[in-house]
C-alpha cells in the first residue's frame, strides 16, 4: 500500500490562543444549530456581515472551523467560494464582487447549501437545450 492510498481527514488546526468572546459565542450558536440539523434536519444561515466581527475575529473563526473535504468555486457576476469546514454540516460561503471585495458572507448549517444544488427551473431549461442538441445531431 503506498502513502497516497491512506485516507486522510483534515482536523481543526489547533489554535494557540483561546477564541475571543465574540468568536466563542458564535461557535456556541453554530453548535446549537448543528444539533438541530442533526436532530430534525432544520437548516440555518448566519449572515456574517450583520455581526461586528473584526478582521482578527474573522480569521480566528476561519482557522477554528478549519477546512473540510469539499471546496467549490462559483463564477457568475463575480466569483463565490463555498467550502465545507472541518465540521460536516457547517459550510462557509463568500460572495465576491468582480473586484474581489466581499459582498456577502454566510455560514450555512445544512446538509448542502441551496446555492450548490441545481434549481428545477435551470434543469428544465437544460433538458430542453440537451433535447434540442440531440435532435440536431
Amino acid at each position: 500500500m503506498n502513502i497516497e492510498a491512506i485516507p486522510v481527514k483534515i482536523e481543526t488546526t489547533q489554535h494557540s490562543s483561546q477564541p475571543e468572546q465574540l468568536v466563542f459565542g458564535l461557535l456556541q450558536e453554530i453548535h446549537a444549530h448543528l444539533q438541530r440539523l442533526q436532530q430534525d434536519g432544520q437548516t440555518f444561515r448566519i449572515d456574517l456581515k450583520s455581526l461586528p466581527l473584526s478582521e482578527h475575529n474573522r480569521s480566528q473563526l476561519i482557522a477554528l472551523l478549519g477546512q473540510g473535504e469539499i471546496s467549490c468555486e462559483f463564477n457568475s457576476s463575480g466569483s463565490s467560494r463555498i467550502y465545507e469546514t472541518a465540521y460536516s454540516g457547517i459550510w462557509w460561503i463568500t460572495h465576491y464582487s468582480p473586484d474581489q471585495q466581499i459582498m456577502a458572507e454566510f455560514i450555512d448549517i445544512c446538509l448542502i447549501p441551496d446555492i450548490l444544488a441545481s434549481h428545477p427551473d435551470d434543469v428544465l431549461d437544460a433538458e430542453k437545450r440537451l433535447a434540442h442538441y440531440l435532435k440536431n445531431l
Partner: peptide, 16 residues
Amino acid sequence: VSRRTFLKFCATMAST
C-alpha cells in the same frame, strides 16, 4: 442568468 446567480443576487441584497 441562472437561478443560481439569481439566488446569489438575492442573498447579497438581503445581506446588504
